[in-house]
């Protein structure tokens, strides 16, 4: 694995155990992401993908019972979600919350101020925003709408990527940013993410489907199953998953769970939505 200039990975997860309402979901996850790398985390429904995403960001409902999560060498688990975000973590939500009454433009400015520590002059903010709206093929009127309120599925996902573009995180977790999108929206969102790739950014792209990987080429692919990463490989692994589904992995690593795993996992993994 390549390492950054300091010789330190941007993001490390060590033996992470997480429970939800007392029920263990993650049972020892290990992961190392270096700057500039895009990792894909795949897995069938119920394997713990969203739990991992929410735990990384510090959602109060997810209880970390063991392990460490290091951003730039610092354990973030004792930090509040907003401190994590200000330190450079970003989560693109699978289901972005609608917030009636809070105007998108004001929200984005408040977030920018929090992340960068200062209020950008209005004109500069506006210019930057227009640029990013353009990148994601979004209408400028979007800025006057309430946050995610009444947005279509595609608009919500674009809005998440827009926020990522403005906040310039160092480690971005994208939780099924590809789900619920038609092919045009998927392409736009993927292009947006690709435009943000660079030598400083680490990406953890969580997906159930292979199809976004037609547009975003990962460096490393992981398979999460029953709360553990059971397989790690290069881009060819995602191809194999598309072809054969998850059943063979379930058979190999968690045969006891084969009966409860969704029977459709194989077909949906390759077929998109």
């Amino acid at each position: 694995m390549t390492e950054d200039n300091d010789g330190q990975p941007i993001f490390v997860i060590e033996d992470l155990h997480v429970s939800v309402e007392g029920k263990p979901i993650l049972k020892g996850v290990d992961l190392v992401i270096n700057r500039g790398e895009v990792h894909t985390l795949m897995g069938p429904n119920g394997s713990g993908k969203s739990t991992l995403a929410n735990s990384i960001m510090g959602h109060p409902r997810y209880e970390v019972t063991k392990g460490r999560v290091l951003l730039k060498g610092e354990d973030v688990l004792s930090l509040t979600p907003d401190q994590r975000a200000r330190n450079g973590l970003f989560l693109a939500f699978q289901y972005p919350m609608g917030i009636p009454g809070v105007v998108m433009g004001n929200f984005l400015r408040a977030a920018m101020k929090a992340r960068h520590g200062e209020d950008l002059p209005v004109r500069e903010f506006r210019k930057l925003l227009d640029e990013k709206l353009d990148l994601l093929k979004m209408d400028p009127s979007f800025v006057r709408r309430y946050v995610n309120e009444g947005f279509s599925g595609g608009e919500k996902k674009r809005a998440e990527v827009l926020q990522m573009a403005l906040l310039q995180p160092e480690l971005a977790v994208l939780d099924e940013t590809d789900s619920g999108l038609d092919i045009d929206a998927l392409r736009t969102v993927a292009e947006g993410i690709n435009a943000l790739r660079g030598p400083d950014l680490g990406v953890l792209l969580i997906t159930h489907y292979q199809r976004i990987l037609d547009y975003i080429k990962p460096d490393i692919v992981h398979v999460l199953l029953d709360g553990r990463i059971v397989k790690t490989g290069g881009p060819e692994l995602s191809g194999e998953l598309e072809e054969k589904g998850y059943d063979w992995i379930i058979q190999e690593f968690a045969p006891a769970n084969a009966g409860v795993a969704p029977a459709t996992a194989g077909s949906s993994a390759g077929g998109g939505d």
Binding site: M57, G58, H59, P60, R61, T80, P81, D82, A85, R86, F90, L91, F93, P96, M97, I99, P100, G101, V102, N106, F107, A110, A111, A114, R115, Y146, Q163, L167
Partner: peptide, 30 residues
Amino acid sequence: VDEEQIFYLQARGIPADVAEQMLVDGFFAE
């Protein structure tokens, strides 16, 4: 105040107390 809305704003770097203010203001705005 909706915990999920607070978390969403916090995930963008906005401290919890400011997030709550924004949500209360938003609640009034309508």
